[in-house]
């Protein structure tokens, strides 16, 4: 997965992905289960997870909710046209808001002027409208134009999956 880890560890990491990408079993010691599957000690398994996280192959190890099922079924892709020179400051500002899940800089294109994207989520249309207003207030004059693209429906959503055969 990276130049930082050895070849044998890379194949171990691949097995770890296949074993855990759909979630750990809900048992008292899930790491002991994983260690057993990987034929490692619990200590080595935890070390491997920590290394993969430290070098960025794992984003987080967490209890990942399904926000849609929790009632957060409204999402809005807010898009902003800000000066390129202001981008580092403004990107960091929007990305730090607790109701923003993703915040990215993307290129402008002919017919597409927006260069800063922030995804917001809420339980109602009013809630995401209020988040957009708040972002607009934060940006103030630094933003020349903005829009919010509300999702009308999810047509496909699958996490990336590696099959065991893909090793």
């Amino acid at each position: 997965m990276s130049v930082c880890i050895s070849r044998s560890e890379s194949s171990l990491a691949q097995r770890l992905v296949v074993l855990t990408q759909a979630g750990l079993p809900l048992v008292e010691d899930p790491w002991a289960w994983l260690a057993g599957e990987l034929e490692l000690s619990v200590e080595s398994t935890l070390d491997l997870l920590k290394r993969l996280q430290a070098e960025g192959a794992i984003r987080r190890i967490a209890a990942v909710p399904n926000h849609y099922r929790l009632g957060y079924c409204h999402n809005g892709m807010t898009v902003w046209d800000v000066r390129d020179t202001d981008m580092p400051r403004l990107g960091a500002l929007l990305g730090a808001q607790p109701f923003v899940s993703h915040c990215y800089r993307r290129p402008r294109r002919p017919g597409w002027r927006y260069n800063l994207f922030a995804m917001v989520h809420g339980r109602s249309r009013e809630e995401i409208d209020s988040y957009r207003e708040h972002l607009r207030y934060l940006l103030g004059d630094a933003c020349a134009a903005d829009d919010m693209l509300v999702s009308s429906r999810i047509l496909k959503k699958t996490g990336l999956r590696l099959s065991p055969a893909a090793r």
Partner: peptide, 23 residues
């Protein structure tokens, strides 16, 4: 609590979230 959330579909999973874009 986690089992109840999982049964209700409110828990996607417990475990590592991988950074696939690096691949």
């Amino acid at each position: 609590c986690l089992q109840r959330l999982e049964l209700a579909g409110a828990l996607s999973r417990v475990g590592p979230v991988f950074e696939h874009s690096r691949a």
